[in-house]
């Protein structure tokens, strides 16, 4: 029902004005270009993706990628084409290699190390804590210091 309503309401505006054409001749190719280009780096820019950049080289490379897509090349082949020429620098998603192992595993190693350290620290604490009287004294001190601050004229 709702669709019908939308269509009916759209008819006058459709009649009044012509629908704009997509900029690209082939929107499917353009969509694939876009998904590829957001993960590729514009080489001459400060730090922009191939999709965002207006630099002439970026335009050339987009044109090149577009042609490769039309030729039916796979994403892998297109990326290899670029890496052969510009190196891994062109990839915003670094490939898994010996030199990037630490980069990809690092976050999870950090997490495991952190979790282990926390559990060990809490265990050790539990053992060391002979009694809580010490911390009671400390708490009294806090209370005293704070009330000093609050009550000072």
């Amino acid at each position: 029902m709702r669709w019908l309503l939308v269509i009916i309401l759209l008819i006058p505006s459709l009649a009044a004005a012509e629908e704009a054409r997509p900029l690209a001749d082939n929107p499917q190719v353009e969509a694939r270009l876009k998904t590829l280009a957001v993960e590729l780096r514009c080489l001459v820019c400060q730090n922009q993706t191939l999709a965002d950049s207006n630099a002439p080289l970026a335009e050339d490379l987009r044109r090149e990628v577009r042609e490769m897509i039309t030729k039916g090349m796979s994403d892998r082949e297109i990326i290899d084409f670029l890496v052969q020429r510009y190196g891994d620098f062109v990839l915003y998603r670094p490939p898994w290699k010996a030199t990037t192992t630490l980069l990809w595993l690092g976050p999870f190693l950090l997490l495991i190390a952190g979790a282990t350290a926390l559990v060990l620290a809490l265990r050790r604490r539990q053992k060391k804590l002979v009694d809580v009287t010490l911390s009671e004294a400390e708490h009294n001190r806090v209370a005293q210091l704070l009330s000093e601050g609050a009550n000072r004229p």
Partner: peptide, 9 residues
């Protein structure tokens, strides 16, 4: 070597 680490990472 030179690499880029960007949004996908």
């Amino acid at each position: 070597g030179k690499i880029s680490v960007g949004p996908p990472y």
